[in-house]
Simulated scan of single mutants.
Amino acid sequence: MSGLSHSRLYLQRLGYDSPPPPTLQTLCELQLRHVCAFAFESLSTLLRLPVQIDLPSVEQKVLFDGRGGYCYELNQMFLALLQYLGFDARGITGRVVMGGPPDARTARTHRLSLVTLDGVRYITDVGFGGMVPSSPLRLDTEAVQATAHEPYRLTFNQGEGSYTLWAEVAGEWRGLYVFDLQVQADIDYEIGNWYVCTHPGSPFVGQLKVARLAAGKRHTLNNAQYAIHYLDRPSDKRTIEYADDMLGLLEGVFGIRLPTQPQLRSVLEGLIAG
């Protein structure tokens, strides 16, 4: 993996004038600032375009083209930043079980990172869509952990040597993904990304999934379904009925500079039509 080429610009986008020290406080600040600054978005897979996950391509897309991305992009760029700052960090992968049984044997299609600080292990994730944790989570405990948003917890699956990440949503614990600490090579990410952006069975191909966090709330867009999820009151939900409204939402709320593909409007109109 090549190193982060535009660390200064990345840090400026996160609100830093100079590199912060590799501490737990910094890790917490970086994760929260990242999920509030950069959108999770699947516009490329919506348009059935290939997603390049080499680091220079990711930097170009996110830092210069004004786009967001998904886990293979955002968590790779975030990991490169952590390593640049001197964190002991590496990538790992997981199996998404959100929306299904927590013990389902799904494909390894999620990327996140493992960070070790003063002998204590944490997971950090800035690329899990609408339920992305907004704070790092301590690995070797099953206690409920507060974040800047919802509570989360981790359980260890003794028989398989894996962990399950859970989030408490509306008073209910929901399994999000299962992961282990197996060392990953670049080809492992390439295979997972190839499946996510090209396979007919991928939930991303031809679909629009967008998310961005703010203080006390989450903005999500799932095809034409837009929602604002609050921590202290019921969610606001509505169906987007016009392409112009969706384009405005993508630019205004999610902070995405729209891609120039001429088919974007017609594809969005198709989503809205159902």
Rank of each mutant, 00 (worst) to 15 (best):
G119R: 10
A224F: 04
Y177Q: 02
V169K: 12
Q207L: 02
A170R: 12
Y230S: 01
Y163H: 15
R218G: 01
D103Y: 03
G248P: 04
D118L: 03
A80L: 00
F87M: 08
Q145F: 04
T260Q: 12
S162M: 07
V120W: 02
Y70A: 05
V35L: 08
D88L: 08
Q76M: 08
I240Y: 05
D245E: 11
V97L: 00
L63A: 06
S7M: 10
K237L: 04
L27P: 03
R257W: 04
T116N: 11
E251A: 15
Q182P: 09
F87E: 09
F87K: 00
G274V: 10
S266Q: 15
Y70P: 01
V35R: 07
E160Q: 14
L82Y: 00
L74D: 02
T26S: 15
F156Q: 07
V35F: 01
G270V: 07
Q225I: 06
Q207Y: 02
A214V: 06
A143S: 11
Q12W: 12
S135P: 11
C28M: 15
Q60C: 11
V183Y: 05
H229Y: 05
G248T: 08
F87Q: 01
P21N: 10
D232F: 01
K61R: 15
G161L: 06
S266V: 14
P22R: 15
A148W: 08
S5V: 07
E168K: 12
L221I: 11
S5L: 12
L55Y: 10
T239Q: 14
E160D: 13
M1E: 13
